[in-house]
Every structure is written in structure tokens, then in C-alpha cells.
């Protein structure tokens, strides 16, 4: 196969892949986002008044979580952090 032909073929395959992946990607992302929300809830449960038996370990995660927490509250339609203890913005 000549290189331009191969390029066209690859483009076609890529286009086809994008077409049929579009909706499925959204569904998978939604599913993963829900899992992420549950994980966040577990990590920040003490701030919401839910006792956390492993707070010693989750505390260590806080620096890693700040960025994701910020994304979460923006996604939930809150421009500023809703929790006093976390000042991400």
C-alpha cells in the first residue's frame, strides 16, 4: 500500500472509531465520575460529619485530592469551595 493510501485508510478508521465511540465514551465517563464522587465522599467524610475509621490514611491523601475536589465543586455548580476546612480557591 502506498503511504498516502495508508494515511487515508488510517484517517478513515480513526473517523469510524470516533463516530461509534462518541456516546459510549460519555457513558463510561459518567460511570467513572460517579465512582470518583463516592471516593471523594469517603475521603472527605469527616468534613461532612460522617466518622472515618481510616482518617489517618486519608489525611495523607488531602494534598493529592485538593485539585480533584476543586473540579468536583465546580462540576456541582459551586464556584467556591463549599467546605470551610478546604480552601482550594
Amino acid at each position: 500500500m502506498t503511504p498516502p493510501m495508508k494515511d487515508h485508510l488510517m484517517k478513515l478508521i480513526d473517523y469510524y472509531d470516533r463516530v461509534i465511540r462518541l456516546q459510549h465514551d460519555a457513558e463510561i465517563k459518567r460511570e467513572l465520575r460517579d465512582e470518583e464522587d463516592v471516593f471523594l465522599l469517603l475521603c472527605f467524610s469527616e468534613l461532612l460529619g460522617v466518622p472515618n475509621p481510616v482518617s489517618y490514611y486519608t489525611l495523607e491523601l488531602y494534598p493529592e485530592m485538593i485539585e480533584r475536589f476543586h473540579e468536583w465543586h465546580l462540576r456541582m455548580g459551586m464556584e467556591k469551595s463549599p467546605l470551610d476546612g478546604i480552601r482550594c480557591c
Binding site: 473517523y15 469510524y16 470516533r18 463516530v19 461509534i20 462518541l22 456516546q23 460519555a26 465517563k29 459518567r30 465520575r33 462540576r75
Partner: peptide, 21 residues
């Protein structure tokens, strides 16, 4: 734009998706 439901999409890709749906 939220990367899940609201995603700007190329018109040919969107057509293909709409048609197959």
C-alpha cells in the same frame, strides 16, 4: 462544556453518531 454530555464534536463524527442512533 463538561467533557461528558456537553462536548463540542466534529460535524462528520456527530452526523455518524446521530445516524447510527
Amino acid at each position: 462544556r463538561d467533557g461528558v454530555d456537553f462536548v463540542p464534536t466534529n460535524k462528520f463524527v456527530l452526523w455518524g453518531h446521530h445516524f447510527t442512533s
